[in-house]
């Protein structure tokens, strides 16, 4: 089979994001596996420099829609543009980075094309002549293997880190202009602007040691115990999403896909189960310690050291042991 594989990239201010480079790598790997060709698609306004960068990648073509009506992302225009382009070119697979922007419009694209949708894939295999995809389910505790059925393109979004951006194959690609009547497409949404979500800025990315707390701490009155451990280590406190949602810590201390990405030399995760949205924000840490009462928690898969137990007993003991070791 000679199948056409498209990779739809995401850019901001003309810069292609890392997950899009990862998606390009996935597209190149898929093209090699099925004997197809990979082509990229870039939507935006003033994206010529990004397009030139893509011209030096091993791709069959780069389709660029560069138009002021695409300056702001809107689901209406992105869906209509891609619906028309995919309808004409008939790619077998269309890959996307699994970003919040992609998840916002991709289901509508699938719905309007009546196309198979595989969100949040982490890998693929070719089995019996068809491509199967693995994706996390149940908060990352398990993985499902799925396959598209019926006709039409298969739309797949790829989870962060599934493929390596630095393994993108260099080469050359021809730039092709994708020209449609963008102004005639209803944007579906009037963009008012973008603002910072967190109050003050706390830069956890520079922290050398982080103590991160999760839902497992149970209640906000346990926070001083966690602070004591952080103090003993000279660490910053961070948290997974449920703790932030419960207002036990301010939003500017959230670690994960909707918070900060951190790479400290030591990361202690207390009462964090390890949902994939959290893992993408901390798995680059040098040494990861997990404390959790559930031995099956996915956090133990990425941790270097684990203690299975009640964190209300383990954390005070750990604080004491650290004080003893560092002062003694």
């Amino acid at each position: 089979m000679s199948e056409k594989i498209w990779i739809v990239l995401q850019q901001r201010d003309g810069k292609i994001n890392k997950m899009s480079w990862e998606a390009i790598r996935a597209g190149q790997a898929l093209a090699a596996a099925v004997g197809g060709t990979a082509e990229a698609v870039l939507l935006g306004s003033g994206v010529q420099e990004a397009a030139n960068e893509l011209a030096q990648v091993s791709l069959n073509a780069v389709h660029v829609a560069d138009d002021e009506n695409l300056a702001d992302y809107t689901p209406g225009r992105f869906v209509k543009t891609l619906e028309a382009a995919i309808g004409t070119a008939q790619p077998a697979f269309v890959l996307f980075p699994h970003t919040y922007q992609t998840v916002d419009y991709l289901p509508r694209l699938a719905q309007s094309l009546d196309a198979a949708l595989v969100p949040e894939a982490v890998s693929f295999e070719v089995a019996d002549g068809s491509v199967v995809w693995q994706r996390p389910i149940l908060g990352g505790k398990m993985f499902a293997t799925v396959r598209a059925k019926g006709s039409g393109p298969v739309l797949v979004s790829l989870q962060s880190g599934a493929y390596a951006a630095d393994e993108v194959e260099a080469g050359t690609a021809a730039i092709e202009s994708l020209s449609l009547d963008f102004a005639a497409m209803a944007p579906d949404r009037e963009i008012l602007g973008v603002e910072e979500a967190a109050g003050g800025e706390v830069d956890l990315s520079q922290a050398k040691v982080i103590v991160a707390v999760g839902r497992g701490i149970g209640d906000s009155d346990k926070m001083p115990t966690m602070q004591a451990l952080a103090d003993a280590l000279g660490a910053e406190l961070g948290a997974s999403r449920p703790v932030i949602d419960s207002d036990w810590l301010p939003r500017n201390r959230q670690i994960g896909s909707s918070g900060q990405t951190v790479t400290p030399k030591l990361y202690i995760a207390a009462g964090i189960s390890g949902a994939i949205q959290h893992l993408v924000g901390m798995k680059g840490s040098q040494v990861i310690v997990a404390i959790n009462k559930d031995a099956g928690a996915p956090i133990f898969n990425v941790a270097d050291y684990g203690i299975v137990g009640d964190l209300h007993e383990v954390v005070p003991a750990l604080t004491a042991a650290i004080k003893e070791a560092t002062t003694g």
């Binding site: 993985f143 293997t145 996915p298 133990f300 898969n301």
Partner: peptide, 26 residues
């Protein structure tokens, strides 16, 4: 438009070194 072929737990093995013992020992 998609079918689930199988579900599975992640492969064990490359996970954490689990430290045993009561809280203080661990």
């Amino acid at each position: 438009k998609i079918e689930v072929l199988s579900v599975a737990f992640p492969e064990a093995g490359k996970g954490a070194q689990i430290i045993e013992g009561d809280a203080e020992t661990a």
